[in-house]
Nucleic acid binder design. Sequence first.
DNA 1: AAGCAGAGCAACCGCACTTGT
DNA 2: TACAAGTGCGGTTGCTCTGCT
Length: 353
Amino acid sequence: MVKMISNNNKNNENCESWRDNLRKGPWTPREDAILIEQVKKCGKGNWSLIRKTSELRRSGKSCRLRWSNHLRPDLKKGPFSEKEEKLIDDLHAKFGNKWALMATEVPGRSDNDIKNFWNTRMKKRLREYPPQITVQQVQHFSSSPFYSVLASCYPKNNLNVELPSNISAANSPPNHNQKQPNQNYYSSSSSFSCTNNNASFVLPLAPMSPYCKSSGLLNDVVMEGNALCRKGKSKMDATIVIVREKEELADKRKIIEEGKEPPLPPIGTSKKEETATIIATQSSSHQLISTEKNDNGGCNNNKEALNNFIPQMDDELLSILKNCPIYSPVRKWYKVDYDEDFPDDDDDGFESW
DNA sequence: AAGCAGAGCAACCGCACTTGT
DNA sequence: TACAAGTGCGGTTGCTCTGCT
C-alpha cells in the first residue's frame, strides 16, 4: 500500500539518499503523533526542519499537507453545514477556484476540504438543480455595454442570445417594466450560448447551486465591461465592486458567526445614491480591510484577495474577448449611453484597437 | 453473496512563486 | 544576477466505502 518515491521523480526533492526512503500513501496514527510533536517543537511552517529532525520518512510537503488538512487543531471535521455551503457558494462565485483564498473565509476548513466539497457535492447539486439563468441576468446582460460589444462584432446580423424556448430572444431592448423577478429559467448547461449566422460561441457561467442567485462571473464581466466603457473610470468601478463585495462577504460571515440576518438597505435607495455612498465611505472601507488584517493575526488575506481578484476579472474578460471573433472594426459600444459623460473627438462611429 | 458503479476523500504531482546563498 | 531549495496552490489520481442489482 505504501509506495516509495521513485528515483525519476521530477520534483526537486530528489537525488539524495533520504529521498529514496520517503514513504508515500496514507499516514499512520504513529506518524500523525510524531508530526504533531514535531510541530510543537519546531513550529508549523518549518516543514523542512521537521523533515530533517524527525524520524518521519515523509517529505516536507507531505507533512505540511497532512498538518493543514488533518492535524491542525482548529480544523473542523464532519459534514458541511448549510450555512457553510452557502458561504462556499458565494466565495466560489466571487473567487472561482481559489481554494486557499476561500479557505481563509471559511473557519475550520482547509482548502482541500473545500475543493473536495465543491468537486463532489456541488457537482451532484448541479445535476439535481441545473444552472439557472434569471430574467435579471438575461436583461442585465442584453442591456449591458458588453452585450453591445458582442453585437458590434456582427454589424450585419444581430447577435442572438440563445435561450430556452420559453424565453424570448434578447436582441430587442429589454423592457424593464415587465420584469418577473421570481421567475427563473433553466439552461441545460452551465454556459450562455451566443450565435449569429456564421459563428457561435459560448459564455461560460460559473456553476450555480440552488442557493445562488447569480453566477458572479457574468456580473464580473458586465461590471468590467461597464468599467471599460467609461474611460478612466474602470479602476474606480473595480474598487467599488471589490469594496462592495468585501462588505457583502463580511455581512455573510456575520450571519454565520452570529446567526443574524443583516439589516436590509433602505427601500428606494437608487443605484446612484448607493454608489455615491460607497465612494464617500471608500476610505473607511479600506480602513475596515486593514482592521480585518490585524484580526487575522497578521495575515494579509484581504490585500492578497484584492490583488488576486483584479487580474482574475481581467483574465476572465480577456478570455471571453479572445473567443469573440472580430471580423470588422468594432463599433463604439459606449456611444449611445455614455457619450454625454465621455465625448470622443473622433466621430466616425468606429474605433481601432 | 458477489460484482459493479459512483461518491467521497486523502494524498500526490507539477507548476509557480519566494527565499536564501 | 543566477541558481537551488523551500513552500504554497490547484488539478488530478486512486483508494475506500456504500448502495444497488
